[in-house]
């Protein structure tokens, strides 16, 4: 299957995205923001639909919309407990507004039904060189951002109250992380589509955390599993002619199920 350029591009794209998805997904699950990952990819779909309407690359529309939404989600008010009471409401409202806009964009873009299907379910076999370059740039930016935020982000994710008391700028850290998560969701959606983008982010990360691993081991496991799922999904799709997101979604659930059995 590596004789074909589109398959080589697909594997390369999956590799880039998996490294990003595993890393960002681990922090998203740690911070109980799985809903945010789900919402961001759907919001990215609306941005991509807007880009189609305007005649620019869907990836850029996806990134722009997700980034704005991520910043809106990250700008939360801290409640009495560890988690913001407004978090889910804020994410839900941003999602609802974005999907409304996305529907309108698709309505305005003539003959966009095939494009909508591509945006929703992804087109990993259609990744070209410019897209690979864009994915690489996004991944490098996100990983550099995470490396900078790493220590206070981990501290604020584990113990928000104590971190704030020690002088960690919790809101700024949250905003920075959500911007990174938005970019990562856009990149994942390019591979597995808006509907299943979060499966590559959430499945491996949830499995790694279920295993009760320390942060470094957990991050390494999440990245490895994301690579295993995306590469495995591509290979199985080649053999069975079933779409890649199907295998990624099912594989993610299976990995988590096995982790539950291992760590009862």
């Amino acid at each position: 299957m590596f004789e074909f350029e589109f398959m080589r591009h697909a594997f390369l794209g999956c590799t880039i995205v998996s490294v990003l998805a595993g890393t960002v997904g681990w922090f998203l699950i740690l911070r109980r923001q799985a809903f945010a990952a789900h919402a961001l990819s759907h919001i990215g779909f609306s941005g991509a639909a807007g880009a189609v309407w305007l005649g620019v690359s869907p990836l850029y529309g996806m990134i722009a919309f997700s980034l704005l939404a991520g910043l809106a989600m990250g700008n939360e008010t801290k409640g009495a407990g560890a988690l913001s009471p407004q978090r889910d409401s804020m994410i839900g409202l941003v999602l609802a507004a974005s999907l409304g806009l996305g529907t309108w964009f698709l309505h305005e873009a003539n003959g966009a039904s095939s494009m909508a299907t591509t945006l929703l379910f992804g087109d990993v076999l259609g990744i070209d060189t410019p897209t690979l370059l864009a994915l690489s740039t996004v991944t490098v930016l996100c990983l550099a951002g995470l490396a900078f935020l790493g220590r206070p982000l981990l501290f604020a994710s584990l113990m928000p109250d104590v971190a704030q008391a020690r002088g960690v700028p919790v809101r700024l850290t949250s905003l920075g992380f959500m911007a990174i998560a938005a970019l990562a969701c856009s990149a994942c959606a390019e591979v597995s589509g808006a509907l299943l983008a979060f499966s590559l982010m959430i499945g491996p990360a949830a499995t790694a955390l279920r295993l009760g691993l320390r942060p470094v081991a957990g991050l390494a496991t999440a990245v490895s599993l994301a690579l295993f799922l995306s590469w495995g999904g591509l290979a199985l799709s080649w053999v069975t002619d079933v779409p890649v997101p199907f295998w990624i979604g099912l594989g993610a659930a299976a990995c988590y199920g096995m982790a539950c059995m291992v760590r009862r």
């Binding site: 790493g150 220590r151 206070p152 113990m159 971190a163 020690r166 960690v168 942060p215 957990g218």
Partner: peptide, 19 residues
């Protein structure tokens, strides 16, 4: 997350960068 990781995360936790 293991208990020891909670303690390690608090050590110089306000500094930027990777622990």
């Amino acid at each position: 997350i293991p208990a020891i990781s909670h303690v390690m995360a608090a050590m110089k936790g306000a500094r930027w960068g990777i622990p």
